[in-house]
Design a protein around this nucleic acid. Structure first.
Lengths: 135, 135
DNA sequence: TAAAATCCTATTGATTTAGTTGGAATTAAA
DNA sequence: TTTAATTCCAACTAAATCAATAGGATTTTA
């Protein structure tokens, strides 16, 4: 049940973009310094965030990344689902379940999945950078 | 963020033990049939559940496993933590974090971890076998 | 003594993770 | 118009983890 480092790097990158939201772009190499990984690996993560339309990019010299929407409108759930295979906790979920008999435990997976998504969607980048989740 | 099959097999085994709680033991091979895995693999999972004192065993002929406590007192959280490395969602958690600077995203991991544990501890095996979580 | 069961430890093939590598395409500034 | 800075794209790889498999040793009842 581990989150991969993509979750950690992706969220940290987005927090940095949130803090810079009024000021403009940040490049991958600026972000990788803050995040603590290589440019090349963070590139791949930024590509996933872009595909999910969480960040937008400008190519070429003086390019970089910004949040597509404001920190108030961007949730941690959106970010983690983008980089973490939709945060899916188990393959066998819902109607597409291939088990012979319906798993008696499936109700647990479905409701846990919802609990996780609902909780993470309640946290915005804005609330994070303002320290509103520290209590 | 995937649960391993140990979570699925372990919980399903425990649900079967809960349904049999008044009647007595179930052997690994009885359980593995219900669960849909091999005896040898389920043995390893039962060993983890026993170490966490969730199940108790009787060795020798006519032996097998039972829940240590009643289905009303056994929670899904206890079971999953026993077989899933304490359900830890990230290594870098709390004071033992080895990051250079404290991760700005750490508040998310800590609170998500608590949300997951609290939720799973609210579900007992008794409520599961009575279908009280289907709504 | 034999059969049925748990207990213990090591090994293994497949998959996933966390990058690395090598460039192509785009853009702004000199 | 060239150069430097940047994103974009695709393939590869070493290490770790997962999901078993394998081979017994030990314990208990009939």
């Amino acid at each position: 049940m581990k989150l991969s480092v993509k979750a950690k790097y992706g969220l940290t990158a987005c927090i940095n973009l949130a803090e810079n939201y009024e000021k403009g772009n940040l490049t991958v190499s600026q972000l990788s310094g803050k995040v603590g990984t290589t440019d090349k690996f963070l590139e791949q993560i930024m590509a996933m965030l872009k595909k999910a339309d969480i960040v937008s990019s400008t190519r070429g010299a003086f390019g970089g990344y910004t949040l597509t929407q404001s920190p108030k409108q961007t949730t941690v759930g959106q970010i983690l689902r983008a980089v973490e295979d939709n945060l899916q906790i188990i393959d066998c979920m819902g109607a597409e379940c291939k088990c012979q008999e319906p798993c008696s435990s499936q109700v647990v997976w479905v409701s846990l999945q919802k609990t996780i998504n609902d909780y993470l969607d309640s946290i915005t980048l804005d609330s994070l950078i303002k320290g509103e989740n520290n209590g």
